[in-house]
Design a protein around this nucleic acid. Structure first.
Lengths: 175, 175, 175, 175
DNA sequence: TTTT
DNA sequence: TTTT
């Protein structure tokens, strides 16, 4: 259907270190969950209440996935902009099951809101025992990338900046 | 967690007429699903592809639910702004299952994008055999509401307009 | 500053036909204004009030600008997603002046919400005397583009579809 | 016009401490500017470029304005969700001038993204000589508010939490 | 200047 | 299950 919009915006904290997988084509994909929560005061009892929601995030975007691998950790606060997608699968009994995820693929955005100290700028960070395959993580991250903070869903190459078109000035020549 | 954001924005079409339920407290709740889709051209074969996603929407907001009941129908195009929530339940075998929904409750927004002709301004619309309990729907909708189009998540009373505070001018007196 | 977000989302109607200009480099740029409005009931007098805001939109994106040229007209309803930008200029007296615009450039989105009948799918639409240079408009639009409705801020070539990467499956092979 | 959307979302840093004014009706209004920026690499020269945009924010919302007064300072990072509004005024020469601002009024949201240490939790913060009227600020802020972090555009009273309706359960009784 |  |  032409003319539709599917957008999810979250600000929350990672529940665990991102898990990085590779597709058969070799592309990096990152998985993690993000907690958001809301609090309110009960109208009747006056007591404070809080409810936390967990969101499964899947980063189907080579550049963004590498950023996740390198900079995000359990507890990191992020702004995430992606789309909602529900995927069907079969459980052991062969019954249909559905899982809804927030997909970062195209037009996606990820902004790191934690200070750099929360993230991992090098490979000597303390390992908090997440059980992740560290060998895999350490494989490809040695090249420096000083582009910290905000990432558009740029190209799939190593350059995460947005490569704005220089032919497009910020001033408008005819005015 | 203070300081989190949980927002979903959709523009899409309803897959069927909204279903209206009442809570035990008598509040209206509307349920419907919204389709969004994206299309692209396959890089290798050049053929056009399209993928549709379905989103379950639950309107936990008395005023907005009534608007849905009165104006939305199968095929209606809407802009929806709500939050993501996953709810746990048990299937017949007692196994945990999860369902993710887009909740319109507080700070929610619903804008009707179909022309009025697509919606139901009166009760004489053609029934497309949705199997819904028509008796319930026809119960409370006779009062006129000329507030068509956009609705903030206003009060739970019959007045859907936002009742802006008149003490707040649009000009700033000190400038 | 890494890690910032600048996003404007509007649903409104065009106040006039878009104006298309060309940069010296030959790129198309579209300008138009969009009206949004809100209505409320005065708390004291009970009378209905309405306030309309006008937003200047500048489409610095070859593909999107062509879509505007071809499909948008005075009165067209659109969803627009861009960024806020204030530009400095000098008035005749040499005094600094500032104009704030909604820029559609990268990561921008434009969804046509009016039916096709409101827009111009051919060149036989009635000309409402907008004074626009019709010669220019008619010049390059003859090639068919059946991609109606929603446009991401795709490439600057003639292909407005998003060219998703085929290496990226919608299923996740390891699960 | 029914059915319109006017939303601005920013993540950025305050350029100076917020200025708090009072309307003649006694309501607090906060003003500050927020910087967002984007960076990219020049296609031709390969050099890094950065552009910063400044946004004027006006908080026409008693509760939110007090939060700004109490917690935000020059440099604070915030997520802001408001609407775009252009206001007309006359310069000294009587010529019409326009200023565009991001208004936080209804449906507005402000999330503090800096750690608490950047903000002012008490009145003993260092004064960075902003020239603001300190007497006015110190006037009304002594009451404790432990509601740090995220604020919906709640009521105009002292309770900034959202007072969710207890009649609305998070589970759906009929399922 | 739009729209309902 | 929608829509183009």
């Amino acid at each position: 259907m032409a003319g539709s919009l599917n957008k999810v915006c979250l600000i929350g904290n990672l529940g665990q270190d991102p898990e990085i997988r590779r597709t058969q084509g070799g592309n990096a994909v990152a998985n993690f969950s993000v907690a958001t929560s809301e609090s309110w005061r009960d109208r009747n009892t006056g007591e404070k209440k809080e409810k936390t929601d967990w969101h499964n995030v899947v980063v189907w975007n080579e550049g963004l996935a590498k950023v996740c691998e390198q900079y995000l950790r359990k507890g990191s606060k992020v702004y995430i902009e992606g789309k909602l997608q529900t995927r069907k699968w079969q459980d052991q009994g062969g019954a249909d099951r559905y899982t809804t995820e927030v997909i970062l693929q195209f037009d996606a955005k990820l902004i790191m809101l934690s200070g750099r100290e929360d993230s991992a700028g090098d490979s000597r960070r303390d390992d908090r025992g997440s059980g992740r395959d560290e060998g895999q993580r350490r494989g490809g991250n040695t090249r420096g990338n000083d582009n910290s903070g905000g990432y558009g869903g740029g190209g799939s190459g190593g350059n995460f900046s947005r490569d704005l078109d220089d032919d497009i000035p910020f001033e408008m020549p005819w005015r």
